[in-house]
Structure formats: structure tokens, C-alpha cells
Simulated scan of single mutants.
Amino acid sequence: MGNLMMILVIRADSRLHTPMYFFLSHLSFLDLCFSSVTVPKMLESLLSQRKTISVEGCLAQVFFVFITGGTEACLLSVMAYDRYAAICHPLLYGQMISKDRCEQFVWGSWGLGFLDAFVNVSLAMKMDFCDTPTIPHYSCELPSLFPLSCSDVSTNLIVMFCSIIPHGLVTSLSIFFSYTCIVSTILSISSTSSRSRAFSTCSSHLTTVILFYGSSFLRYLMPTSGSSLELIFSVWYGVVTPMLNPLIYSLKNKEVKAAVRRTLEKYLQCFWWQKKERG
């Protein structure tokens, strides 16, 4: 509901039709998809006695986790570049972040996420599973499936690391370099109010980056053992982070709070006038 509200508010308020909020609306859509991939089945399993999922259903879940997770990693790096352009090169911002380039960034993020998913799940479909394996997890994730396979998964492991590590490293390093330049620029600003305003525009995105990257890196790089830490990290980046993102951006962003207020007032006025006309 939080992500859906964020998408509707950004679309409804013309003052938020800027590149920053264009990317934020896509992040909210991604978070909505990300949590929708695992949470419904997770809730069903928690509430029912038979906690089962077909192999096809499990691989489909893995596929969409890869797409949404990989796309979100790319989009977070794009949003960091957007903040870098706005703070470090304000006069060139219109050229660096044009409308066409924004769309290219978003479609490129989806393309890389799909490529990762296609390569890894295509190989995973060739795995054989012994009898009726039990997944020591709340959802289907590729690292949890490898120990359950009767076939050789060395190629799958190599491909997974060769696709995830460069993807994760490139996006995380681009975020790191963007924020290195941003911090350097902000510290050179003499005005305290301008400095705090510049920091506030980045704090929400930086919080989201730390929550997402911290938990997902720990989940995919630690050895699969079925420990409680694996479950915590997986639930954190797959469920908690998508739920917290709209709160982080709405509570720490004055423009979003003002837009929510304007949108609510507009719809309440429409509702009041309709009620008055009927009365």
C-alpha cells in the first residue's frame, strides 16, 4: 500500500514530475513487484499445514526474485548518479539527466535484471532434485536450491557468482564513487543551510542503499547452511526493505509529504463536492 501510494502521488502531482521522482516511482513499482513475488506464498505457508511448492513454481519465484532484485540494484545506482549530477553539476543537470536518458536508464536496468534471471534460471531448470526435498527457507532462492540437487551444480554456482558479483560490484562501486564526489562537493559549500539541504536530498536514498545492499550481499555471499541469519537477511531485503522504502522517502522528504497532503486534500474536496451535489 505504501509503494502504491507513492506511485499514485508522484503521478498525480505535477510538481513531482522530475527525474528524481521518475526514478522513485519506478523504485516503488519494483518494491511492489519484489514483495509480491515472495510474500503471498510465504503467508500461505505460514497459515497452512501443507507447506509445499512445485519445482516449476519454485523456479518461477527464483526467476522473478532475480529480475526485481537485479533491476533494483541497477536503479539504485542510477538514482545515485542522478543525485551526483544534481549536486556536483547543477548547470549541466538537464543535459546529463534528460527525459530520454531517464527512460534508457530504466529500461537498461530492467534488461540487466532480466539477463541475470534468464541465464541463472535456464541452468537451474536442468538440475535434478532428490525425492521431495525440503527447502530450509521462507521462499525459493537459488543458493538454497543447490544443496538439494542430486546433479552437479558447480557450473550453476560459477555462473551465479559470475553474474551476481560483477552486477553487484559495478552498481555498488558506482554508488560509492557518486557519493564520494557528492560528499566532497557538499563539504566545499560554505552555507550551512545549503549544505544541510543537499545532505537531506541524499539521506533517503543512502538509507535505502545501505538496507538493500547490506542484507542482499550478506545473503548471497555467505555459505548456504540454513542458519537463522540467512532467513533474517533474506526476509530483510525481500520483505522489510520494500516495505520501509516508501516510509523512508515520505517521512524524510518535505516535497513528498507536501505532495501527499495536496493529493489527499484534492481528493477529499472532490469527494465532499460530490456528496454535496447528491445531498
Results as ranks from 00 to 15, higher is better:
M6Y: 03
V9W: 00
V9L: 03
L16A: 01
T18F: 05
P19F: 03
F23D: 04
F23W: 07
L24F: 11
H26E: 07
F29N: 07
F29M: 06
L32F: 08
V39L: 15
K41D: 09
S45M: 09
V62W: 01
V65W: 07
F66T: 04
G69N: 06
E72I: 12
L75F: 01
Y84Q: 15
A86I: 08
I87F: 13
P90N: 14
I97L: 06
D100H: 06
D100L: 05
D100E: 06
C102G: 07
Q104G: 15
V106Y: 05
W110M: 02
G113E: 01
L115C: 08
N120D: 01
V121C: 04
S122F: 09
A124H: 06
K126E: 04
T134R: 12
S151M: 04
S154I: 10
T155C: 09
M160S: 11
G168S: 10
L173Y: 09
S174Y: 07
F177M: 11
I182S: 00
V183A: 08
L187Q: 14
R195L: 07
R197V: 00
A198G: 01
S204A: 14
S204H: 12
L206C: 04
Y213G: 11
L221Q: 00
M222T: 15
T224R: 14
S225H: 12
L229G: 11
E230Q: 10
E230H: 07
Y237L: 07
P242L: 05
P246C: 09
P246G: 09
L247I: 12
I248Q: 09
K257H: 08
A258D: 15
R262E: 13
E265V: 13
K266E: 10
K266F: 10
Y267W: 11
C270K: 14
C270L: 13
W273N: 12
